[in-house]
């Protein structure tokens, strides 16, 4: 299956839930990256969707998993460290959209 994004792409984690995740009791997108803009660090390939697996389903269709990098001062107001510090989070494709410059 082809990945929608490539390393280096600017992406945004959707603030609202993607359609297929609405009402799902188990998600693996942490709250603190919702609506945040990051850069694709690496494309990890397709994995079964944990939102479905948690409900005893087969987790299909698979979603491409990305490691997305965020600048720490952007995530946390008053971040107490150098501006170059980063945070990388694994995010499934259906939670990502292209970020415009």
């Amino acid at each position: 299956m082809s990945a929608r994004f490539r390393p280096g792409d600017a992406v945004r984690v959707t603030a609202e839930r993607p359609a297929i995740s609405v009402g799902r009791p188990h998600i693996r997108t942490p709250h603190y990256v919702r609506g945040q803009r990051g850069t694709v660090a690496e494309v990890m390939g397709p994995f079964r969707n944990p939102e479905g697996l948690a409900a005893g389903e087969d987790g299909l269709p698979k979603q491409v998993l990305y490691r997305v990098r965020f600048p720490q001062p952007q995530l946390w107001r008053g971040y107490a460290g150098p501006a170059g510090d980063t945070l990388e989070v694994e995010i499934y494709e259906h939670w990502l959209e292209p970020a415009h410059a």
Partner: peptide, 15 residues
């Protein structure tokens, strides 16, 4: 030192 980037990885999915 400040010149070193501290990169935190949140192990949120399958890795």
């Amino acid at each position: 030192p400040d010149g070193i980037e501290v990169r935190v990885h949140d192990s949120t999915a399958d890795l």
